[in-house]
Design a protein around this nucleic acid. Structure first.
Lengths: 275, 275
DNA sequence: CGGTTTGTTGAGCCCTATCAAGGTAGGTGG
DNA sequence: CCACCTACCTTGATAGGGCTCAACAAACCG
């Protein structure tokens, strides 16, 4: 069912990407010259945590996961990357080591652009630099949102938000007033998605069930139909920890709005500078 | 104990910062020309979430917190920023809106550099661009680490790791083999730190107690003395959820009246089986 | 000295993880 | 075509980490 793409030249593939748009032809050929093609089977490691970063990875075809792993063997997936996406930007540009592991989720074709080529382009071309900066900023925005989700949202809400995002991604036109059911198909396995959302597969399954029981959606394998979009939005916006959809809202004990807390007069600052 | 700094020219203050190092004098004066000084009392909002970003904030004196807030009034602090640190880089460079709220934790002096000045410098000076890129990458590294912590570490471990980081920050030389106790003083209130670590103040307090009962550290107000550094490291490295250290010790004493200004070393013998 | 902010302690409960089996589905070989 | 294997997913039971609620103690401040 997955059709192997016809292989075109690396230069052509690179030139096609928004990231490299506007580079001069000779700059592109420079970069293409420092690029090598990688074919990886499913389950192959692309890089390890704490490994020195050698360049930028570019997914041509297939899926790659970025993840952490604890000594106990637990793993947390930071994200899944598909065609035309890049891996390892931040490590590359910090001149440091990778912070995560990267492993293919399926057979993959990748390009690897050597570090010096990127750095050279960065120095020479301010438009390219600007584009890199945009990209890093978006990364920050995404991570920040993730932290917000973990901190302020329940697992249920994270699931709802995820589905909503996914839905709008597949059909950008569908706005919140749209009444018609919206069908989305999960981009990868449920287990992987669960890990991305920082919950266990079991819990994810139960949440989906519960939402289904509440009439919000219906599940059929990896296809999910959102039956009640407005309710979805309502749920995502509220930070209300909704009692189980079918368990009745009888116990309406909302949490007490806590006063903003803790001022302080000392001078130092906490952790390393974010933002 | 906090001494109000003598006010020097904004140009001089800016030139002093690593971020702007290497800029030509006229570039610096350009930037200084677009900079205004802000004096804020404690509790003042610097910006709101979803507000358009007008420029870069620079802390001269005082502390500012970056935080999210849920409809329920719960708040999660992303970070606390002190003298010489900057706020809002990523929003600025994405050309988008702020993702967090910013509020002063104490009376503050700040500088605000208008957006166009930064963007211009970025375009003109590739060294500056490079420095911004480094900074954004560091941001990403920090946030990534944060996500890792939330995903793979218990609250206890996050506390230990935080203290360790703080300890090494105040005394960089102290390496893990050092046996001597290490005293650190928390840079801000415990409530704020708890929020940064994504736990409640109550839980934070209990964890500190438990670590104290285990002989790992002793607490006196905002001063914390790490008694057993190697054990700290061991704990931070393992992802093991250690069984409660003082389960048996609980019956020992009801409470420990804290003595002002002095560490209380007498509370208990350290012979209690830990681990 | 009273009011306010900050920190501690106790009791109870809920969300979520863990452990442990089952189902299902797709691919492979007989 | 069926048996079998290996992911992948679901379901059930149980427990525990961390939060909530509620006081109270301590420190701070004018």
């Amino acid at each position: 069912m997955v059709c192997k793409p016809v292989w075109i030249s690396t230069a052509a593939f690179i030139a096609r990407l928004p990231l490299f748009e506007g580079l001069a032809p000779e700059e592109l050929t420079d970069i293409a010259g420092c690029t090598r093609k990688i074919s990886a089977v499913r389950g192959e490691m692309l890089f390890h945590k704490n490994e020195a970063c050698s360049g930028l990875f570019l997914v041509v075809h297939g899926q790659v996961k970025l993840f952490f792993s604890s000594p106990l063997g637990n793993e947390k997936i930071l994200g899944v990357f598909g065609p035309d996406q890049t891996l390892g930007e931040s490590a590359l540009l910090q001149g440091k080591t990778y912070q995560t592991y990267a492993q293919t989720l399926s057979d993959c074709t990748l390009l690897h652009i050597a570090k010096p080529a990127i750095l050279a382009a960065l120095d020479r071309n301010s438009v390219f630099a600007r584009r890199i900066i945009d990209r890093l900023s978006q990364s920050i925005a995404g991570l920040t949102e993730e932290v917000e989700s973990y901190s302020l949202c329940s697992a249920r809400q994270r699931v709802v938000k995820y589905l909503l995002r996914e839905a709008l991604h597949t059909r950008p036109g569908a706005d919140e007033n749209r009444r018609r059911p919206l069908v989305i198909s999960l981009p990868t396995s449920k287990g992987v998605i669960a890990s991305c959302l920082n919950i266990t597969p079991q819990h994810f399954s139960r949440i989906l069930n519960s939402l289904s029981a509440g009439g919000l959606l219906s599940v059929c394998g990896r296809n999910i139909r959102i039956e009640n979009l407005p309710e979805f939005w309502r749920y995502a916006d509220d930070a209300l920890a909704q009692p189980d959809a079918e368990a009745e809202a009888a116990s309406g004990h909302g949490r007490r709005p806590s006063r903003p807390r803790n001022f302080d007069t000392s001078t130092r600052s906490t952790s390393a500078a974010f933002l």
